[in-house]
Computed example of a mutant assay.
Amino acid sequence: MELMLDTANLEEIQRGISLYPISGVTTNPSIIKEERAQDFFGHMKSIRTLIGHQRSLHVQVVADACPSIISEAEKILSELGDETFIKIPVTEEGLKAIRLLSERGVSVTATAVYTTIQGILAMLSGARYIAVYYNRMLNIDIDAPKVIKELSGLLWANAGCCQVLAASFKNVSEITTAYAQGASCCTVAPSLLSTGLHMPSIAKAVDDFHASWQQVYGDKTLLDL
């Protein structure tokens, strides 16, 4: 299992990797827009510096036609390094680019996946990750858990090296359901991870433990004993 951060905010990334078992960072044009980063590649390089080379960085192209997608991918790789994952939406032109880049050894994350057939075609084209848009699918009455389960089952049955990367979450329940249905990776906004840990019941349990300790040992800590 893997957990990634779906953000381009440097402070969120720095805090996230210090707290959580993060394996990578995913970005897209909408996420970049929130940061108002005028120096795109400078900002991406800052993210790489923060996460190091042991974590993956996923950067999305904006072109629609295959030749332009490939040119943008080459630019991203030249600026950010060959280990960078190129995010490409699964359209007809996108699939063509995924196949051609994968044949050259480029790591590709197929994105904007809403249906099982999109995921299958991306897998067969050589994508390393299939980014399934969980909440967006629910919003248009597509059964996101079913799609994740089908894609994960196909990967397991065929011993594929691709992974289902669930994305686009609005609450913690969606994240846990995605994992339970077979997603091997989820990319999540840092605020959702924080929400999952800051519940009154958790705080009360911790307070109760402290109270029990103090009833026996007073203000002494374990280090004082």
Rank of each mutant, 00 (worst) to 15 (best):
V206D: 14
Y129V: 06
E12L: 09
G218C: 05
G24A: 11
S23V: 10
K220I: 06
S125D: 05
I47V: 12
S71Q: 14
M137H: 01
G94M: 02
T26C: 11
C185H: 04
T91K: 03
L138N: 09
D143F: 04
G126I: 09
K146T: 05
I140M: 12
H58P: 02
V90A: 11
S212N: 11
S78I: 07
T176P: 02
P67Y: 01
I88S: 01
D143E: 05
F209S: 15
D224P: 00
T109Y: 03
G94P: 05
A167F: 06
D207Y: 01
W156R: 14
Q214M: 11
G160H: 03
K146P: 00
L151Y: 05
P21M: 08
V113D: 04
I76V: 11
S184G: 11
G16S: 08
N135S: 15
E150T: 11
I47Q: 03
S191I: 03
S173G: 07
H43L: 02
L80F: 06
S71I: 01
E174D: 08
Q38V: 10
E34C: 10
A144E: 07
F169E: 09
C161S: 14
T7K: 02
I51W: 03
C185M: 14
I70A: 11
L155K: 02
G94L: 05
T177E: 15
C161V: 05
L222F: 15
P190C: 08
A211N: 12
S152Y: 01
C185L: 14
A178D: 06
S184C: 02
S201D: 11
K45G: 08
G24L: 10
A144V: 06
